[in-house]
Simulated assay, not measured.
Amino acid sequence: MRGEVRRKGFWHEPDALPTSKAIALQTWAPVTIEVLLEREGRKITATDLATEVQSRSGVSTSHPPTSWVPDLLVVVDHLRTLEGEPSLSGLVGAPPPPPRATRSSGGGRAASPRVSAPRAPAKSDRPVSTCPRCFMALPATGICDTCD
């Protein structure tokens, strides 16, 4: 780890030239298709796919696979649909969920997750009426201060 620079975002290897997520996805899509077709129908985890695609393409990221592999699979399936080919996203399994910590309640039972009832939106979250001419928010009077 000594002397190694920790990069963030998306970049081209080996010169660390920064790039965007969109360009990374565009670069990774054909590589992903290649990797999945080589597997001849065998499943692969999202983490293993991410590692292989970054290694082959020369574009890397510091973001976890769970934040970009689903987007990549959407692009891959879109390209496959345009080519009249079947989807490949079914070959990619989600990484196993991290183990959940259980809280001991004295009876040896795992704590059940709390589910809250749906709430009504706050007044501040409700849509605002806007003027049809200037698109400014209307005051409570309903008459636009700018236009009228």
Rank of each mutant, 00 (worst) to 15 (best):
V53K: 04
V53I: 15
Q54H: 06
Q54G: 13
Q54C: 13
Q54A: 14
Q54K: 14
Q54T: 08
S55I: 01
R56S: 06
R56G: 07
R56W: 04
G58P: 07
V59W: 11
V59A: 10
S60T: 04
S62N: 06
S62Y: 02
S62D: 08
S62K: 04
P64I: 10
P64W: 07
P65G: 02
P65L: 01
T66S: 09
S67H: 09
S67K: 12
S67A: 14
W68E: 01
V69M: 05
V69L: 09
P70H: 01
L72T: 07
V74R: 11
V74A: 10
V75N: 05
V75H: 05
V75I: 14
V76E: 00
D77I: 07
L79M: 11
L79K: 08
R80M: 15
R80Q: 15
R80T: 04
T81W: 08
T81A: 14
L82M: 14
L82W: 02
E83W: 01
E83R: 15
E83V: 00
E85A: 13
E85H: 08
E85C: 00
P86N: 07
P86G: 06
P86I: 06
S87D: 07
S87W: 01
S87Y: 04
S87L: 08
L88R: 03
S89T: 00
S89N: 05
G90K: 03
G90I: 02
L91M: 13
L91C: 06
G93S: 13
A94I: 07
A94G: 03
P95Y: 02
P96Y: 03
P96T: 02
P97C: 00
P97K: 06
P98M: 00
P99T: 10
R100D: 02
R100C: 03
R100P: 02
A101F: 06
A101H: 11
A101Q: 12
T102V: 14
S104W: 10
S105V: 05
S105Y: 11
S105I: 08
S105N: 13
G106I: 11
G107Y: 05
G107C: 09
G108R: 13
R109A: 15
R109F: 12
R109K: 13
A110D: 13
A111I: 09
A111Y: 01
S112Y: 03
P113C: 03
P113K: 06
R114E: 09
R114C: 01
V115K: 11
V115H: 09
S116G: 06
S116N: 01
A117Y: 03
A117K: 09
A117S: 11
A117V: 02
P118L: 02
A120K: 08
A120E: 13
A122L: 15
A122P: 01
K123T: 09
K123E: 13
S124M: 03
S124L: 05
D125M: 05
D125W: 00
R126Y: 01
V128A: 06
V128H: 07
V128G: 03
S129Y: 11
